[in-house]
Write a protein that binds this DNA or RNA. Sequence first.
RNA 1: UCCUAGAACCUAACACAC
Length: 420
Amino acid sequence: LYSYNTLLIQLGKFEMVGVAQNVYKEMMNSGIKPNLLTLNSLINILCKKGKVQEATLVLSRIFQYDMNPDVFTYTSLILGHCKNSDLDSAFRVFGRMVKEGCDPNSVTYSTLINGLSNVGRVDEALDMLDEMTEKGIDPTVYTYTVLLTNLCRFDRVKEVSHLFADMRKRGCHPNEHTYTALISGLFRSGKLEVATGFYHKMLRDGLVPNTVTYNTLINEWCKGGKFVSALKIFDWMERRGSLPNAKTYNEIINGFCLEGYIEKAMVLLNKMLKVGPAPTLITYNTLINGYCKQGNLNNARRLTDLMKEKGCEPDVWTYTELISGFCKWGKLDSATGVFNEMSGRGLTPNEVTYTALIDGHCKEGNVDFALSLVEKMEESGCYPNLKTYNAMINGLSKEKRYAEAEKILGKMVEKGLLPN
RNA sequence: UCCUAGAACCUAACACAC
């Protein structure tokens, strides 16, 4: 039992759901009776991936064994619902645990606060912070970090400094994670100086930036026209004790692509293949996108072969990049070919894929065909978003079909989409 | 008072200008 539990816990850290489920089955087959720890670990692994249905099945086993779920069980379930943006269910579980006499703790609250703010309900999240305080549950650095991240994400930067001061007053000291989250959130909302201000504050606090911190800076600088600074960090971060990981390399590769130096990006890919860190699906997708953007679709294709050879299966992003690439260079037939190929490989096109193709057809003057694609995507349960409609409106306007363009505009407003 | 629960970083589609 102890070995199985340890194994499950480790698998959870690496988010290896499938393996964990097999281990659990094996355990059941060999007649070992799981305890609450076993089932909690399994529930958590499933919930981290949003597989609440399956987690609920495991929950019923807890009852079968006549055990009682504890805070760990409930908090994991709440997490699962939050991952699915299903806050109603999350609160249902929350209510249930209270009714069963199981007291939520600061982790439970942080999970809910994170769930709320991830769907934009930041005010309610802030209310929960008050609620937990009233109940005598002390918020932790985690709690504050979650809130700070989301205040940045939703452009409420003004409230950041208040909350930041608050947390220190209450004895919660921002750590590397907190600062990195702040920097990242501020970058995302375009507050570059404020972000770098926090970076320096972090150093003044005596905290040591880690790989994620550097990745955050590198990513921003690669995209914001400060590629040289990004490269500098990449160069010395290892000497400062932070090993570059695959994400670091992916960001630099993207930087090289954006600057038009694909060959340099390819040198990095080869380095990754030879000495690591091992390239990921995103590494290949980044390079494929680079080639697509510069119109070198042969090389883009070649890379999809290479990635398969190396054990990375192309995903929806890969195919969407190719489709967009072919469209951009007027090769609509090839784009359609890729679209069919991807369906043939069991991948479902999403709204981005459709938009790429729709835009391609609009730009080639096949506006009517584009319109039929919009219908097709709706039929397949994939809903046009702002960008899809923008592409259509643009296509129709260029053909001077203004009445139809305005009809689309009306339709998107009807659907609650805010035109930009 | 042992083991399990919560936070940060990478890739694709739309206008304008070029």
